[in-house]
Amino acid sequence: MSDTASQGSRHIRDIGSRLWIISIWTLLIFFIVNLFGIIGSVLMSSFATRWLRSWLPSGLTTNWYVSAWSEFQLSDILFTTFQVVGAVVLLSGLLGVPAAYAMARRDFIGKRAVMLLFLLPMLVPPITYGIPLATVLYQAGLGGSLIGVILANLVPTVPFVILVMIPFIEQIDPRIEAAARVFGAGTLRLFWTVLLPLLLPGVLAALLLVLVRTIAMFELTFLVSGPTSQTLVVALYYSVFAAGVRAVQSIDAMAVIYMAITLIWLIIALRFINPTQMVTRGKQARA
């Protein structure tokens, strides 16, 4: 193998790999530019006096926020949203964390079946189980009510908390609990003084994720909610669906309010978690 020949082939290889890298970056940057374009056009439109047939609106105003607030009765919708989200976060924590603890610490007969039951609502998309679920809730007289919306939203969030918490609990050494028992801590004291402080970071991260997901959960809320139990994202859907009834800027103002609320919580959540955790579902889903 002569030196120049090997250098020549290496040269071609270098150019090839550089082209490959450049094309991948181009792809990614193109995607991100369009993403920002989509978000940016909503933002721009919500401040536009008039925006037709031009790159930029003819003038800027904040009036649409005022009109959206009253037109869409946003104060009611926001109150409903916070009620739903608050209740879902609280309940999925109360139900999910103890269940995760049991799943992480005990090996019992039928555990695999239970695990499958926790996994399924994460794998089956909401619209698939949402229709039978909505049917049952309407039969039970809970359709359209706030309670119905909260219950429906618990179906994906409780398993989510469980799946996020199981690996977190598993990495806490059980000997710490044993040590606390040796020193005479009762079950309740053990929970408050040893377990809770250890679990808190994991619980916080899981519940923040639940919070962000529930604000954005459209399908289940949409199928179950009635006029008095709409959350912000469902109200947004209805107003986009009925486009033409309201000014587009007014809808965009609502969209920006929705976006702001989601993003604030996302930013808070990202202080505690890695963005990849938004999509991975605990280690069981990986196995």
């Binding site: 369009n34 954005a216 994202v233 986009v240 809808i251 969209a255 890695n274 999509v279």
Partner: peptide, 28 residues
């Protein structure tokens, strides 16, 4: 990863509204 997690978090409804503006006949 943070930028890419945005559309997932914002959800399909908001992305749909944004796309109507952005990819619409008069969009950017």
């Amino acid at each position: 990863t943070t930028i890419l997690v945005l559309p997932i978090t914002l959800g399909t409804v908001l992305v749909a509204e944004g796309m109507l503006n952005y990819f619409g006949p008069q969009g950017w």
